[in-house]
């Protein structure tokens, strides 16, 4: 029997959702693929066929959310009238919005990525192709439309933005403010700053230095975050310094 692409996609989403639910209920370590299969109403071989390991399932989840987020952006009628900053901000906000119902699950993943040895940060990069492609496209359009001048390190920008995105998610995971409005503010202000930098000629004047600092700060923060639990507040502070001078 031939299975159509869309049927396949449907099964995948069904498995993912039951996996997320089970992981929220039992924790990542105690949730078995077998039980996920049962809850999703598929056979054992089927689930292994889709996801050879629980880790693969995680990555698929992240990719799936990228897909959904991008689909959601495509529904915005006048999205092309958004500024680059608005487009990027919408992309992240939409992803966070999608994560919201699975927040408990995301918290577990974040914990594994940043604190435990299990998942490697680098692995996450394998899931970002769609995200980076999208950002790259937004950037190209903005440059082409002469909304911004071609920034130095143009080719690194999308990856840098991915780093930034991971950091925002990490912040969101720890955010205990009402409706996560701290994250919304962080996003709004930091992107406002980035926008200002892109619009000024600061980058071309002090490009190497500026970019070096920006990237170093980001990476340092992430590094620290990955190794020590308590360092989170430090990152926040650091970020504050970077963003507010």
């Amino acid at each position: 029997m031939k299975i159509t692409q869309s049927a396949k996609e449907k099964t995948k989403i069904k498995i993912l959702q039951s996996a997320v639910d089970l992981i929220i209920e039992k924790g990542f370590d105690n949730a078995s693929l077998r039980e996920m299969a049962k809850n999703a109403g598929v056979s054992n071989p089927t689930i292994y066929n889709y996801f050879p390991s629980k880790e693969k399932l995680l990555y698929a989840y992240i990719e799936q959310k990228h897909k959904e987020a991008i689909a959601s952006l495509q529904e915005i009628e006048d999205f092309q009238t958004y500024t680059l900053r608005e487009q990027l901000q919408t992309l992240i906000e939409t992803e966070l919005e999608l994560y919201l119902e699975d927040r408990e699950f995301i918290i577990q993943i974040a914990d594994m990525v940043f604190h435990a040895s299990g998942l490697k940060m680098g692995k996450l990069y394998e899931t970002n192709a769609l995200f980076i492609e999208t950002v790259d496209e937004m950037l190209s359009i903005a440059i082409e439309a002469e909304e911004i001048a071609e920034p130095p390190f143009r080719e690194h920008m999308p990856k840098l933005f991915w780093d930034y995105y991971i950091m925002v998610v990490a912040y969101w995971v720890k955010d205990d403010s009402e409706m996560f409005e701290n994250t919304t503010q962080l996003l709004d202000h930091s992107l406002g700053l980035a926008e200002a930098v892109l619009h000024s000629d600061m980058l071309s004047k002090a490009s190497d230095l500026g970019m070096f600092f920006f990237k170093t700060h980001m990476l340092n923060s992430l590094q620290k975050f990955a190794t020590k639990k308590e360092s989170f507040s430090k990152i926040k502070r650091k970020l504050g310094e970077v963003l507010h001078g």
């Binding site: 915005i76 500024t83 900053r85 608005e86 901000q89 919408t90 919304t184 709004d188």
Partner: peptide, 19 residues
């Protein structure tokens, strides 16, 4: 409040995106 933020606020507050 830029467009991204307007969209986000409406979704958070009213449960639906503006459109």
């Amino acid at each position: 409040i830029n467009k991204a933020l307007v969209r986000k606020i409406i979704k958070t507050e009213l449960g639906l995106y503006p459109q």
